[in-house]
């Protein structure tokens, strides 16, 4: 669906999923940090409230993740997450070069977005890693910690819960770093707020390589 130089990138279900996911993950990061930081988290919320908020958000984000999975299975959105084997490494490197050099030297984007290309190669790789590896990892370890009696008691001399908790924290940290990069890269547009407006309205402006 195109309208002049606008493409309808983000259908309603995707925007609902993205909105819930964004709010849920922000709550998870704040409460997660507050619990893990080891300082008196009372300045934001008390520990027990943080635990409750973390658990509830975790469950919401998990249910929401199924919306993402099903949405990508039944609609054409799923194809944007498929990687082409050709120039597997070269393509994201080319995009990274553009972000670090080309865009400051008047070069145009090597992989301009169109109705057929919603993500540039670098973006695609990051999204695949986060959505199909990190988030499921966080969900699995998170649910294990929610039902700690299910966790293997000992992994060699380590406590199974300890190992699970460390993995959960590492994944949580990776997702937090992704969120910062995601938010920053989103400001690279015609104007810094343009992409944020797009994910709310669904319409994305195409500046180069118009269809």
């Amino acid at each position: 669906m195109t309208n002049n130089n606008k493409v309808y990138f983000y259908p309603m279900w995707l925007r609902i999923w993205h909105g819930i996911n964004a709010l849920g993950i922000i709550v998870l990061i704040i409460t997660g940090l507050s619990m893990q930081s080891g300082i008196d988290s009372g300045f934001i919320m008390s520990f027990d409230k943080a635990v409750d908020a973390h658990n509830i958000s975790g469950i919401i984000v998990t249910l929401n993740y199924f919306l993402f999975l099903i949405g990508n299975l039944v609609t054409s959105n799923g194809k944007f997450y498929l990687v082409k084997p050709r120039a597997f490494i070269k393509r994201p490197i080319k995009q990274a070069k553009y972000y670090s050099w080309g865009m400051f030297h008047g070069e145009s984007a090597p992989y301009p977005l169109s109705e057929k290309r919603k993500f540039n190669p670098l973006q695609k790789y990051f999204y695949i890693l986060v959505m199909y590896l990190a988030v499921p990892g966080a969900i699995i370890t998170g649910f294990a910690l929610l039902f700690p009696e299910l966790i293997i008691e000992k992994v060699y001399s380590l406590s199974g819960i300890f190992v699970t908790a460390v993995f959960h924290s590492i994944i949580g940290f990776v997702i937090s770093i992704f969120l910062i990069i995601h938010l920053y890269v989103a400001t690279i547009g015609k104007s810094p707020l343009e992409n944020f407006k797009s994910i709310i309205s669904g319409w994305h402006h195409i500046h180069h390589g118009k269809k």
Binding site: M35, Q36, S37, S157, L158, S159, I161, F162, A165, V166
Partner: peptide
């Protein structure tokens, strides 16, 4: 890390 056979959120940091 290795000596940990218990885990307390906020206490057992690595």
């Amino acid at each position: 890390m290795v000596s940990n056979d218990s885990y307390v959120i906020g206490t057992h940091q690595v």
